[in-house]
Design a protein around this nucleic acid. Structure first.
Length: 282
DNA sequence: CTTTGGGCCTGGACGC
DNA sequence: TGCGTCCAGGCCCAAA
């Protein structure tokens, strides 16, 4: 389940291997990803030099020379590898393969096909329908994610804060894991109405969001069944989860015993699992 | 405008 | 062993 830290880890890993290289060939095995691959996808960037690799929210952006960019969203189970397949032959869910100059290859694997790719003019990326409504970039400047910016972005929404954090139009890049973790660190209940987070709470939450995302990037992201790094290494931030996936376990900051208090709780909000400590989070 | 819920998709876990 | 069912959650979209 790639969220911002996993995509940023991927970006950092790919950058030194790919930037400056020419895209020699793109092979397409399946076009029916989350959205159909554009007709000219394989041809549009062929022969162009990759200038920079960027990220916006959970999107990976390949900026080529000649005003062309490729966008990649990993969805739920999307993975990108620069390594060769572990066994000979093409893996079952390898939908795209890119060959860069110098022989460097990039493989896109996505069993659930919730991921997708698109192409756009770099100069018009801001108007791309998937990017134009994205909210605050949590680790960016302008606007820097602080309490005031967060409270403004939440904009008096009456929905639960957990749901608001998952709304990419408010904040870009936070998914289910890091939303739970940030709320836990900030001591804010996931059920609290978003419009009650204004001053001090907003400051705490903004700080918690930035901190948890930065620490996760530092750790190479959180590994799961659906996420491996491009070099097949494992991220290890899952060992630092305070509440996510830990229902019934002792809250790491409480001294109360889970046998008597029930420990970390699990709930469902908007069809998504949420984990929280009812004592610490209000 | 906001909010809510369903749909897409597959592999793995689980119960019988 | 094998079958059916449920679950994970990224995003979009229709409906209220």
């Amino acid at each position: 389940m790639p969220e911002l830290p996993e995509v940023e880890t991927l970006r950092r890993e790919l950058e030194p291997h790919l930037c400056g290289r020419r895209l020699e060939a793109v092979s397409v095995r399946r076009r029916d990803l989350r959205f159909p691959l554009p007709r000219d996808f394989a041809a549009c960037a062929q022969g162009l030099r990759l200038e920079t690799l960027a990220r916006r929210g959970k999107y990976l952006l390949f900026h080529f020379e000649g005003d062309l960019s490729l966008l990649c969203h990993l969805g739920m189970s999307g993975q990108i590898f620069t390594t060769a397949p572990p066994q000979a032959g093409t893996p079952r869910h390898e939908h795209l393969a890119f060959r860069f100059s110098g022989g460097r290859r990039l493989r896109f694997i996505d069993p659930r096909r919730f991921g997708f790719w698109d192409r756009a003019k770099t100069s018009a990326l801001g108007e791309h329908p998937r990017l134009c409504h994205l909210g605050i970039e949590p680790l960016g400047d302008a606007p820097k994610l602080d309490g005031a910016a967060l409270a403004l972005a939440l904009g008096g929404r009456r929905c639960e804060i957990k749901r608001a954090l998952l709304d990419q139009h408010i904040l870009a890049g936070v998914g289910n894991i890091y939303a739970s973790e940030a709320l836990f660190r900030a001591g804010i209940s996931p059920f609290r109405a978003a419009n009650t987070i204004r001053a001090r709470r907003a400051e705490r939450l903004a700080d918690a969001l930035r901190a948890v995302l930065e620490e996760a990037i530092e750790a190479g992201g959180s590994s799961s069944r659906d996420y491996r790094r491009s070099n097949e290494a494992l991220g290890y931030f899952q060992h630092s989860w305070g509440v996510y996936g830990r229902a019934g376990a002792a809250c790491p900051t409480c001294t109360c015993k889970p046998e008597t208090t029930g420990g970390v709780r699990a709930a469902v909000q908007g069809g998504r699992s949420t984990f929280y400590c009812p004592r610490k989070q209000r």
